[in-house]
């Protein structure tokens, strides 16, 4: 193992992430079979797995420059061969947003779920249109797609909080002891705190890369915290003293 490999895969960001994935997987496989089949547990784990996987692939692309360059060339990007934005655009900004919308959807009352379903359809149509029309290229920064996805997630979180103060099932419980409350809070914080830096990412890297990187770090830390909360959701049946049972809208 050379030094560059160690630097790429064993840093302050990947180590906690990989640990969270391992804890998540262990907790998930220790769950009873019926809980493993429950979307409230497998979906958070899927988001953790996907996030950790694409982050590691991202670090691999930084380690293996030739691979990154060849993918960029395949996508038509010869101007910025050092970029691996294509990977983050597809996984984090597109599939990730859809998975987060799906996660928000399962915590909403059945009557409100239709709004999220429509948001997901609109988002898919918008990303296909924006990329095929060339308005936002897959290998470059995609502020419109990010803004669209982040706004949809913020609206979804808003719907959850409205449900929390209006639905009788939620009024009977203590929100601070609900996994769903912490999930929604941290998803909302992650997307709102990284909103400006993500939309102005290109500008910041050109004008003030140090500040750009600092603001990006806030987003990275928030993503780690969100992954932590998602792992905690998977582990919640093992620590039932801390978390209350989620109000039963209906399972799945």
């Amino acid at each position: 193992m050379d030094d560059r490999f160690i630097e790429a895969f064993f840093n302050e960001y990947t180590i906690p992430m990989d640990l969270l994935l391992m804890i998540g997987l262990i907790c998930f496989f220790k769950l009873p079979k019926e809980l493993r089949a429950n979307v409230h547990y497998w979906l958070p784990l899927l988001i953790v797995v996907l996030s950790v996987l694409f982050q590691n692939v991202g670090f691999y692309t930084n380690y293996n420059y030739e691979f990154k360059k060849s993918v960029n060339a395949f996508l038509g990007n010869t101007q910025y061969p050092q970029f691996n934005l294509w990977l983050f655009n597809i996984t984090d900004k597109q599939i990730g947003v859809l998975l987060f919308l799906g996660l928000i959807r399962i915590w909403l009352a059945p009557s409100k779920r239709i709004y999220i379903t429509w948001m997901m359809y609109i988002f898919v149509v918008a990303i296909v249109f924006l990329q095929l029309s060339g308005i936002e290229l897959m290998y470059l920064h995609q502020p419109i797609i990010f803004a669209l996805g982040a706004n949809m997630i913020l609206v979804g979180c808003g719907l959850y909080f409205i449900g929390m103060i209006t639905q009788e099932e939620y009024l009977d419980s203590n929100p601070l002891k609900l996994v769903s409350f912490w999930q929604m809070t941290f998803i909302m914080f992650t997307f709102s705190l990284s909103y400006i830096s993500s939309v102005a990412l290109f500008y910041l890297y050109k004008v003030n890369p140090v500040l750009g990187e600092s603001l990006q770090t806030i987003g990275d830390i928030m993503s780690l915290v969100t992954l932590g909360i998602l792992t905690l959701s998977v582990a919640s049946p093992h620590i039932s003293r801390i978390f209350e049972k989620e109000p039963s809208y209906e399972s799945n």
Partner: peptide, 16 residues
Amino acid sequence: QIYVIIFATLFLGGIM
């Protein structure tokens, strides 16, 4: 512009 970005981020965090 950089200050606007910093304060806008802090403002959004505060609002949330």
